[in-house]
């Protein structure tokens, strides 16, 4: 082993050490903040109940009622996971949520894959042909100001006409949210190599295709993965929002809608479902982040 190699190894170990310490510190402060938030929640409740919903020492009403309907105890929310969701129902809430999450995830994954491919192709076309970028980019950006919920019913109806399974329509809605970050970051990544790097390729008389494959694509990879992480969560959000007006019965969107209708008879179930929805989004983002670790070499990843 040469000297240079040993030195590098040493550095590596130091870096790994520092990473561990950083991760540990983050985890610690995360837990601390979490504990603090839980404390605030329960503290607010306890205080409000002691003063009968008034700001202490005044006759002003607290902005949020501290009763169990508005703010269930955290343990009630946790406990509701293990109880049947409906009176006389068989499945406990946790199982219902898991099934619904799996169903929604299938929609989201399909939307994610489709949206990413379309997003990448658009980005690549825009990167190659300025005219396309100039003429279409404003609409791509404007597309994201359209409230999804408004177009969802139409897409569902179109899907119905074409005899698609209803969840395909939801995937399309999910793809609508997914493609955008990928397009933007693909374009940004393909344009990221500086002029000298491009000119070096030109000096080899490389073809456009070779420049794309050997320079622009590798340069764009970290950008694309950053977008994919954003898109992963966006696809879950898109799937859930897409389910709301589509009448699909099996997904998280319907679960959220149902529990919000019956909020009064069990607010903790809605809270638990929201946590479930968040967990699905996070899980998907984590999976993509792991894929990034695997595919994009360390040091080339864009930091958060």
């Amino acid at each position: 082993m040469t000297v240079a190699q040993t030195v590098e190894l040493g550095l590596d170990e130091n870096q790994r050490d520092a990473q561990w310490r950083l991760a540990l510190r983050r985890a610690a402060s995360f837990l601390l903040i979490l504990l603090l938030l839980c404390g605030v929640w329960e503290g607010y409740k306890a205080l409000g109940q002691a003063t009968r919903g008034k700001v202490p020492f005044t006759s002003l009403k607290l902005p949020i009622r501290p009763d169990d309907k508005s703010m269930p105890h955290l343990w009630t929310i946790g406990g509701s996971l293990l109880q049947p969701a409906r009176r006389g129902g068989e499945d406990i809430l946790l199982v219902i949520l898991l099934k619904a999450a799996l169903f929604t995830w299938r929609e989201a994954v399909m939307g994610f894959v489709g949206g990413s491919v379309i997003g990448f192709l658009l980005g690549a076309i825009f990167g190659r042909f300025l005219l396309f970028e100039r003429s279409l980019m404003p609409y791509i950006v404007a597309s994201q100001t359209v409230p999804l919920l408004a177009i969802a019913p139409m897409i569902v109806i179109w899907g119905g006409r074409l005899n698609w399974p209803a969840w395909w329509s939801v995937s399309i809605i999910s793809a609508y949210l997914t493609f955008f970050p990928v397009t933007i970051n693909t374009l940004r990544g393909l344009r990221s190599p500086n002029l000298t790097a491009v000119e070096l390729m030109r000096s080899y008389a490389a073809s456009e295709m070779q420049i794309l494959l050997k320079l622009r694509l590798p340069a764009a990879l970290p950008y694309i993965f950053t977008a994919l992480k954003v898109s992963a969560t966006a696809s879950v959000i898109g799937a859930i929002v897409g389910e709301l007006p589509s009448g699909i019965q099996d997904g998280l969107g319907r679960v959220l809608l149902t529990f919000s209708y019956y909020y009064i008879s069990g607010p903790e179930k809605l809270y638990a479902s929201i946590v479930g929805a968040a967990a699905l989004g996070i899980l998907f983002a984590v999976i993509v982040a792991l894929a990034e670790r695997w595919i994009v070499p360390e040091g080339r990843r864009l930091s958060e």
């Binding site: 983050r26 601390l32 969560t233 989004g281 983002a285």
Partner: peptide, 24 residues
């Protein structure tokens, strides 16, 4: 450290369909 501790919350909230909070 505090700012870093907020990051996971930011990521979590980012991954949540916030509109689901609407009924609440």
């Amino acid at each position: 450290a505090v700012a870093e501790g907020m990051m996971p919350f930011a990521i979590a909230v980012n991954s949540t369909p916030i509109v689901a909070l609407a009924p609440i």
